[in-house]
């Protein structure tokens, strides 16, 4: 059974935290098709959040096709996400790499920065991001056209 942790200071909407943590559990193989998500009652009893927030998160997961609500039975996982279960060999290699980074004297932030840079290089984010409602973000210099 997954347990959700709600961080009130994260600035991420509470329902979205539940959605993201479910994605994470699916990616890591902590949840697999056929598994049951905790009931709204169980989630709110542990987290003290509003029941409608949980239902909103579950509706979003259902819309994404990841889970399905079965009347009177609960909400069940329909399909998994990604292919990097917690016990995959790739995780082992990453663990080795992290050990070598530590041995080389890198600190947590150094490792995170390095990882983020490689991630950015190998998995560029989709270009067609919907326009943000908030202030526009600065574009990376490499994608800016030079009219001159």
């Amino acid at each position: 059974m997954v347990e959700y942790r709600i961080d009130r200071r994260s600035g991420v909407a509470t329902y979205l935290q539940i959605v993201q943590q479910t994605h994470q559990a699916l990616r890591l193989g902590l949840l697999e098709p056929g598994d049951k998500l905790p009931t709204a009652r169980e989630v709110v009893e542990a987290t003290a959040i509003n029941p409608n927030t949980v239902l909103k998160a579950y509706r979003e997961l259902e819309r994404e096709g990841l889970v399905e609500a079965r009347r009177g039975l609960g909400t069940f996982v329909r399909r998994s996400l990604g292919s990097a279960p917690a016990d995959s060999p790739l995780r082992g290699e990453l663990l080795d790499w992290a050990g070598r980074a530590r041995a080389a004297g890198l600190e947590r932030d150094d490792v995170a920065a390095l990882f983020a840079a490689v991630l950015e290089e190998q998995f560029p984010p989709p270009q067609s991001e919907p326009p943000a409602k908030t202030a526009p973000r600065a574009q990376p210099a490499t994608t800016m056209g030079d009219p001159a």
Binding site: I6, R8, R41, V44, E45, T47, A48, I49, N50, P51
Partner: peptide, 26 residues
Amino acid sequence: GTLMAEAAEHGTTVVMSSHILGELAD
């Protein structure tokens, strides 16, 4: 958490007063 579980299970309406919003927000 207990209050929210009651609300989830029985559809109980809850009105809670406070002069600070704090933990009521979620």
